[in-house]
Design a protein around this nucleic acid. Structure first.
Lengths: 158, 158
DNA sequence: CGAAAGAGCACTAGATTTGTGCGGATTCCA
DNA sequence: TGGAATCCGCACAAATCTAGTGCTCTTTCG
């Protein structure tokens, strides 16, 4: 029901935490890496799934990972340059916005063959695209900033 | 993955169709009711599920239903006064935004008992609230209007 | 009364999500 | 050099949600 998966939830929790770490780091210096275990110990989330989310974020180029002892994760870029769209895409896969993905599926692959029969032009496809555009306008930083009004999260992007 | 269900898709298809019907009705007069069968015949959607979506919309006060022969559905209000938020709420249930619905579930019902342990204050809750606020700003009319740019769907609400 | 159309109920199959276990690879530290 | 911490990869079970279908009942028009 228009919900993000737990996986994304865990990922966001970790990201906000990492963003905090990065913000707390001394000027100029890079923040220390944080291990999946350390994050899992602080929040009541299954450590294993958290690790999966972190891995996905690393593969998506959002996190840098360091292996071995004293290893862990760290934001690959400043939080202000990471968009929510990227995050969700990395955690939940592609936006599924290919052409007319509403009734299109019923028409089989290769494009929406029933285009004339589809006078609505899939409002959902337009809708999702709109949502996606929004997501790309929200940065991790604004999410991590607890002072931001939820309702203003999206609109405030001049 | 942040997706709306088929049920919502079917509902939206029907709603847009009904909005068209209402727009085509003679000035002042109410539009004719449209049967679920009639809609199902026009679009490649399972008639039965379409009916379920319509029923949900009726229970949500978005549609008026007329039973018996020559019965059918009709918008309960002008399309411009029906918000996308309402529609999605009617079709997919409540927004699931009760208190701290991120880590809150792990704390059991009755409120987020782990509040101090939750330094993120559930970014997801804020996020969903933001999305929801957006949805309430989009009218069925703007969805039915095919000339609206998807990306501008939300931002254009002065 | 019969046909049309909206409700209600139960059920099956399929997909997705969530969660877990185990072992391997890599790197730091003593 | 060995041990420990940590990130990775694969496979599997359980729970939940979604999609779809069948049958019956009630209501209303003709």
């Amino acid at each position: 029901m228009l919900r993000l998966t737990k996986r994304t939830e865990y990922g966001l929790i970790a990201l906000v935490h990492l963003a905090d770490q990065a913000a707390a780091a001394p000027e100029g210096a890079e923040a220390d890496v944080v291990s999946a275990r350390a994050i899992g110990d602080q929040f009541p989330v299954p450590r294993r799934l958290l690790a999966e989310a972190l891995k996905a974020l690393q593969q998506g180029g959002i996190l840098d990972s360091t292996r071995g002892a004293q290893g862990g994760y760290r934001l690959a870029r400043p939080a202000s340059e990471i968009s929510l769209g990227e995050i969700v895409a990395a955690l939940e896969g592609a936006p599924t916005l290919t052409s007319c993905d509403g009734l299109g599926a019923a028409a089989g692959p290769g494009g929406c063959e029933v285009e004339p029969v589809c006078p609505i032009r899939s409002p959902l496809a337009r809708l999702r695209k709109g949502i996606w555009t929004l997501f790309e306008g929200v940065s991790l930083q604004s999410l991590a900033d607890r002072s931001v009004d939820p309702a203003a999260l999206f609109t405030a992007t001049p």
